[in-house]
Design a protein around this nucleic acid. Sequence first.
DNA 1: AAGAAGTCGTGATTTCCTTCACAATTTATC
DNA 2: GATAAATTGTGAAGGAAATCACGACTTCTT
Lengths: 214, 214
Amino acid sequence: MDQNKIPQATAKRLPLYYRFLNNLNHQGKTRVSSKELSEAVKVDSATIRRDFSYFGALGKKGYGYNVEYLLGFFRKTLDQDEVTDVALIGVGNLGTAFLHYNFMKNNNIKIQMAFDADENKVGSSIGGVPIYHINDMEKKLNGIKVAILTIPASEADGITDRLVEHGIKGILNFTPARISVPEHIRVHHIDLAVELQALVYFLKHYPLVPEVIE
Amino acid sequence: MDQNKIPQATAKRLPLYYRFLNNLNHQGKTRVSSKELSEAVKVDSATIRRDFSYFGALGKKGYGYNVEYLLGFFRKTLDQDEVTDVALIGVGNLGTAFLHYNFMKNNNIKIQMAFDADENKVGSSIGGVPIYHINDMEKKLNGIKVAILTIPASEADGITDRLVEHGIKGILNFTPARISVPEHIRVHHIDLAVELQALVYFLKHYPLVPEVIE
DNA sequence: AAGAAGTCGTGATTTCCTTCACAATTTATC
DNA sequence: GATAAATTGTGAAGGAAATCACGACTTCTT
Ligand SMILES: NC(=O)c1ccc[n+]([C@@H]2O[C@H](COP(=O)([O-])OP(=O)(O)OC[C@H]3O[C@@H](n4cnc5c(N)ncnc54)[C@H](O)[C@@H]3O)[C@@H](O)[C@H]2O)c1
Ligand SMILES: NC(=O)c1ccc[n+]([C@@H]2O[C@H](COP(=O)([O-])OP(=O)(O)OC[C@H]3O[C@@H](n4cnc5c(N)ncnc54)[C@H](O)[C@@H]3O)[C@@H](O)[C@H]2O)c1
């Protein structure tokens, strides 16, 4: 597969398409056009067709796309056939919320274990996920390649180094710290305070016209 | 102010710069170069200089930027001088986590009230934020222009319509639903499951070389 | 005071992504 | 079975953002 050429922007939209196709399938719909899809996921229909085209000709002219076929295709492409195991570090406010959430429902992802420094939390479990002591992280992690970071920013660098040392491949970082990792490790930042402030900034500086007369 | 020309990508980085400058200031640093900044926030130094240049010549050649001056400038630009009030809808796992977080620390943003449909939650308060019944939303909202949505996806459309009707300007949407709003309202989506799955996809399909020999 | 080193601001270039627009093809209709 | 309608896949154009690269200026060193 030469999927190396798929634009990053496209790759980020795939899970969205997948989830919506899943919904359609459950509703019993068998075909869908890029136009319908566009209205549902709020992505331009040309962009959707372009995105799909990177994977070959998945549709039929004059017809659209077969839901079941497309779904099957994306399931393979997104590796939805095998479960991806994830570890969560830091069982605080955010971490606890994630542990209660079932990522298996739409995505084939499972938080298998969590770690914390707080002795009161260690030994218990939340949402069926066992919580271990952070000192035992290396012992427990085993083959897990993806970690979610929900610890205080001050702890981010230290824990990141340990994760890297242990051979982690990807980190979803919710701390405000911009962590440093070797080039072969992928970090996605989700900075909630920044997102909120950026929204506020846009509202104040990019006033949108209330009525668009065409 | 002709800040309408500031690229969106730049606008999204401003809160990040702001936070880091704040840190520097607390550390007592008085000057900083785009190179130093670059290493800290992991943004190319040319990009940083370009970003700053949209606001005029804020630095000095051969010297760098004066931390205090830059900080003051951004504080004004980001409207950090006045508090932005926000409402949170849906006091579940995620919503509760946000209520415990203090957005006043780095950002001048305050969740002033929360709404839920669950009678058991209504009347209490979390992190000092009062929780009202969703039926009373319009009565309580008053002048609030920004809402955080942390309700089940199935409720998203209905609540969004009510928010729009009431005159909301911006929504930070954590539900997987792609909500529809009139053009003059700004919606930012944060889709945690999609983020996680996109990370997994990148790991499998964009293998990065473990060692870069130069 | 002169030369070296550091750093900004920005024109030019490159990269990446989105959107337009239409030929090709299929499906639907009469 | 012919005509109309729908819809894809994609070349080409357009746009936004990142990066290069360097002249101009400041500060540091001796
Ligand atoms: N909660 C929010 O709404 C929110 C918003 C924006 C950013 N954040 C960021 O997300 C991160 C987590 O936020 P939170 O509100 O869940 O914080 P929290 O303080 O509630 O949770 C942090 C958890 O990490 C644990 N911990 C501390 N040091 C540790 C270590 N060395 N190893 C393992 N565990 C350790 C603590 O025991 C605690 O359970 C923070 O960096 C915060 O800045 C949170
Ligand atoms: N928790 C996570 O980690 C996570 C991950 C990915 C996506 N999400 C999404 O975020 C959203 C919230 O997730 P959660 O885990 O906090 O859910 P949750 O079920 O814990 O919380 C939802 C809250 O909304 C309230 N609610 C229900 N209907 C309402 C209405 N009409 N008006 C006001 N309040 C109402 C409920 O009483 C509940 O308190 C969901 O859409 C979920 O899909 C959550």
